[in-house]
Design a protein around this nucleic acid. Structure first.
Lengths: 117, 117
DNA sequence: AGAAAAGTTAACCAAATGCTTGACTATTCG
DNA sequence: CGAATAGTCAAGCATTTGGTTAACTTTTCT
């Protein structure tokens, strides 16, 4: 399992903003121009552009310009990478619970034993 | 599906830092004290404390102090929430591809049609 | 040609982040 | 008691982030 700390940094950072998640949710339904993305967003066009740059920098979004309109679309691979990291943690957590169960049943059968606080 | 934008903000923000992901990965294997978490981390103890505060603020980590040592443990529920958001996007993406396929096969049978790059 | 539309660039600003050092508070041990 | 241990608090500081406005460049439409 390769460590791409920088990549994960950027993806999670990109997803850490509600506006950018809105853009992702919009783009998941299909491609959109910068203006279409900006219209429902209660902020200036340059602000949206900066969010778009963050999303492109981490590979979540790709865009091409045709004429005077730039069309953006999602790139689902990077989303998977983030999901995989989280899933790996959850899996490890469940494994730990399993082994903890083994340990407890092997070393003490009494059901109400624990660290008394 | 309720929108808890603030929560997701905080969780993804927390995961957007490699140090904090290291702490999560460590804590997934089992509880640890602040000092144990700090030891491999190439930064001062207060810095680790601040990361811990971020992780606690978003609910990823819980801790209790006994005597002079504070023991931290993971809280996997919040991790699930983040995973679920990403999974929902991926699911929506796959649905879109399905319907797009329907549309294409209904409206044009020619098999080798696509955007030639 | 000239005006409207779509996007882009640059400069600036306030707030948040991620660290540091130094001082301080509890606990525990000899 | 006094010293070591474990953690905490408080400033301070450099950088990043998320937004603004104003000016500018390309298309495209009439």
């Amino acid at each position: 399992m390769l460590k791409q700390a920088g990549s994960l940094d950027r993806v999670f950072q990109a997803l850490a903003d509600a506006t950018r998640r809105d853009i992702v949710e919009r783009l998941i339904r299909g491609p959109a121009s910068v203006g279409e993305l900006a219209r429902p967003l209660a902020m200036s066009l340059p602000a949206v552009m900066q969010h778009l740059q963050v999303l492109e920098a981490c590979g979540l979004v790709r865009s091409e310009k045709a004429g005077r309109v730039r069309t953006c679309h999602i790139e689902p691979g990077v989303l998977r990478m983030a999901e995989d990291w989280i899933a790996a943690q959850r899996t490890a957590w469940e494994h730990r619970l399993d082994h903890l169960g083994d340990y407890l049943t092997e070393h003490c059968d009494s059901p109400d034993q624990g660290s008394a606080q």
